[in-house]
Write a protein that binds this DNA or RNA. Sequence first.
DNA 1: TTCTATACATAACC
DNA 2: GGTTATGTATAGAA
Lengths: 237, 237
Amino acid sequence: MVMSNGAGNNKKRTKGQQKIEKKKIEDPNSRQVTFSKRRTGLFKKAAEICVLTGAQIAIVVSSPGGRVYAFRHPKTDVLIDRYLNNDNKVATAISNTEPETETTKNNQPPLPINEFNQHYVELSRAVEAEKKRRETIPASSGWYDEPVNGMNVEELQAYLCSLGELKNRVLTRADELMMINKSGAFFNSNTYEMGLNKNNIIPPASISTNTAISGSIPCRFLVLPFSDDLEFCRSSS
Amino acid sequence: MVMSNGAGNNKKRTKGQQKIEKKKIEDPNSRQVTFSKRRTGLFKKAAEICVLTGAQIAIVVSSPGGRVYAFRHPKTDVLIDRYLNNDNKVATAISNTEPETETTKNNQPPLPINEFNQHYVELSRAVEAEKKRRETIPASSGWYDEPVNGMNVEELQAYLCSLGELKNRVLTRADELMMINKSGAFFNSNTYEMGLNKNNIIPPASISTNTAISGSIPCRFLVLPFSDDLEFCRSSS
DNA sequence: TTCTATACATAACC
DNA sequence: GGTTATGTATAGAA
């Protein structure tokens, strides 16, 4: 029976991973460390799922300290960030609304961008090989194919307005139908895990809105589309 | 020394987890199985991070088969859908279609949230109940007129998807034009879509846009807020 | 789904 | 950010 460690001297160098209680970590420092490590792990998992199954994933994480991180795949070709471009005011205003204590203030200025999460680079590379796959949206019908290319900016803008109206009508109509056919069954029930709902279904063309408020910073994201490639994002602090 | 298995018969019952290549799983069936298992795992991880660190997370996953699943924490009791609530302007602004940056700053819910969530859930519910699966985009020539009233919920959804696509196309096109004559005519929030924000960093109060396309279905989600509690969602197929 | 054997993630320490 | 021991996720099979 040979033990890798001397019989009476097999003192373990570390305790290894310990089982931890599934409750909020008290120590702010460990909490931060755990957050960082796990966030990395989460994104990695997400990246794997994308590569392995061809799924598309978008993740937005707001750390307890207020930073916002995001993962996306495929990479979006239309990443919009109006705040980033010209709306710091909003961010600030919103933050003030948050009466969070503790590490709140940490997250200050609503602004500067900074570097890219390096994980992105790593994973991106890994995924690159796979990237030859999916193509762009297979435009279905052709009713809307033509107009766009022939318009100028003004026309496009007007067109967009029309689309907005149409969209609204569609939603309104869908809503009406729902009211009529309401099956009475409760939707939001079931308990997947932490008391939430298990089969909360999100229809393909649905839109949901939330207000994201990290421990300190209320945020707002609009995660819509996907396109191609893996992508990691990190907000500035 | 008793071994649970006979000495010469300790054939392992399974091979245990095998290391797999980080490439797309060929077999559609295993791919689906993997997707399901890993999606569950991903959500679980996300839930743990939320509990352990107090972080807030939103995840949207589009399976290769086209279903859309989502995870959120906290659960939003303020799940707002401006679109569904007739707040065209705001919705537009937020989603990036907005004509100007000005109005944007007020992107904080000028309008209180409502029971959108439930609303939304119901819509999904109905859709699932019917489960007749989406059809092709019904719209044709008079697309802007009144196709809406003749559609059922599924059709409306499909239609909405199409609109989303179209919108993207319009935005993309507009952006292209702007790149060319980057005069001052600001269409919607500048070139954010592709030009700016090269590093894809999402600031605390940012908005990003993507086009979600499931294997075949272009979708559009708006994942904004958070609030309280964990929540798992799944789309119908 | 459920079951195992393993691969992998990560808590506690550097 | 790196190391190690251990907790967990999960590939493969039923």
